[in-house]
Every structure is written in C-alpha cells, then in structure tokens.
Amino acid sequence: MNPSLPSPEFLDRMAAAFATLGRLHLQSPDEETLSQLSELLNEWPIEEAGDTAFGLDEIRKSFNEGEPVATIRRDHNLLYGVTAGARVAPYESVHRNQDGLIFDEETLEVRAEYRKLGLQAPKLNQEPDDHIGLEFNFIAQSCLRALDALDQGSTTDASRYYGIGAVFMEQHILEWVPEMLEKAADAAETHFYQGIMYLSLGAIEAYQVGQ
C-alpha cells in the first residue's frame, strides 16, 4: 500500500481530530477540557455530516443539558474499566486475540509500528500499547510528521510519514475500532461519550475518504 499524499489542510484537520479524540478516549475530561471543547465545537475539523453530525449533536445535548463532569467521568470509567471491569475493552489485543488477552502478539505488533515514528506508549510494559486512544494519537502524529516534512520541503519524507499512518489505519484500527465504537456508543450512559464514539467513527470515515 502506497497512499498518495493528501493536502496539508487535510493533514492538519486529521491531526487535530485524532489528537483530541485520542485524549478523550485515554482520559475522561475535567471542567477545563469540557469548557475548551464547548468553545471549539462549532469549529470541529471534520465536516458535519453522517456520524460526525450525530456525534456533534450528542455532545451539544450534553452541554445544553448540563451533564455534570462527575457523571461524564463515571461513564468513561464504566465503559473502559479504569477501576473495574470494562463494558467495552479499549485494547486491540482483547478484540483481535483469539483468547482475548492483553499484552499479546497484537500489542507487540502495535509497539513495533509506534517505533517507526520514534514513539512508545507512555507507560511501557505497565499498560498495553494498543489502547484506542494511543492508536488515534499515532494517526495524529503521523499527520503532524508529514506536515513538518512538507514545511521543510521534503515530499518524500512527508509521504513516508503519512504512509506509516495510513497502513496502520488499514492493518490495525479498521480491524477492530469501528465495531468497538458502536458497542461503546450503545453502552455509554451520557450524551457526551455517545458523541465521542460517533465523532470517532466520523474521523475514521473522513480519513479513509482523504486517502
């Protein structure tokens, strides 16, 4: 697979979307984060259509109804099992491994992909590398590296960095994340996290179209 290099504008939008969503999958928001997101909602970097439109509507409902930050944080905890069993495991290995194990072959494959951009999971060997939030951030970093290369006049390096992310999307994220997001949207108790799941589906769709 050798995807063609998209426009800098596309790379910038994908980097912003996947970085934001990656953080919200990894960690539930605090009041400051919710306030920032509320201000930026009308400037979401992906066209308001399909799953993205539905996701934005759900998050607007969350803000309009005043869902408490404690309720949103509890929802994240229950969904991903931060302090107990997960309703929907956020790790690739659990979904793709025949025995549902973490830190298995799939985790090590993801770790090897991260190294191609000189990255590693922040809690290496303590928490699995293949959390959806980390995988989304990898896509964001791929786009940012491509943008930096273009700024330096190297389309060859830009294509290489973007290609690393595009292959990762094809071989990893698309193999498990869309189905996991749909399950998580059904399991979510807040408009906020239902919205995040659909925004994530919309981001994946937009990235694929951009290729």
Rank of each mutant, 00 (worst) to 15 (best):
Y114K: 10
L108G: 06
K116T: 13
V88A: 02
L150I: 09
F192A: 04
Q98A: 15
L79G: 01
D12Y: 05
E47N: 13
D99Y: 00
Y80P: 02
S93T: 14
F192W: 06
I59A: 06
L40Y: 06
E9M: 13
I72D: 06
E9N: 11
A158Y: 08
E48W: 02
V82F: 14
D129A: 15
G202L: 08
A146T: 10
S7R: 15
L24H: 09
N97M: 00
G195E: 01
M197C: 15
N125I: 08
A86W: 00
Y207V: 10
L119R: 01
T33H: 04
F138I: 15
D148G: 01
Q36E: 09
T52V: 06
D12L: 11
G22H: 01
S35L: 09
S7G: 08
G133Q: 08
D104R: 02
G81T: 15
S28T: 09
E67K: 12
A140Q: 02
V69C: 13
P90I: 03
L134P: 00
R23Y: 13
Y161E: 11
Q208A: 11
Q152L: 07
L144I: 12
Y193F: 15
F192G: 02
A17G: 10
V88L: 06
D186V: 10
E113N: 08
E31W: 07
F18E: 03
H191V: 04
L34T: 08
M180F: 04
D157K: 08
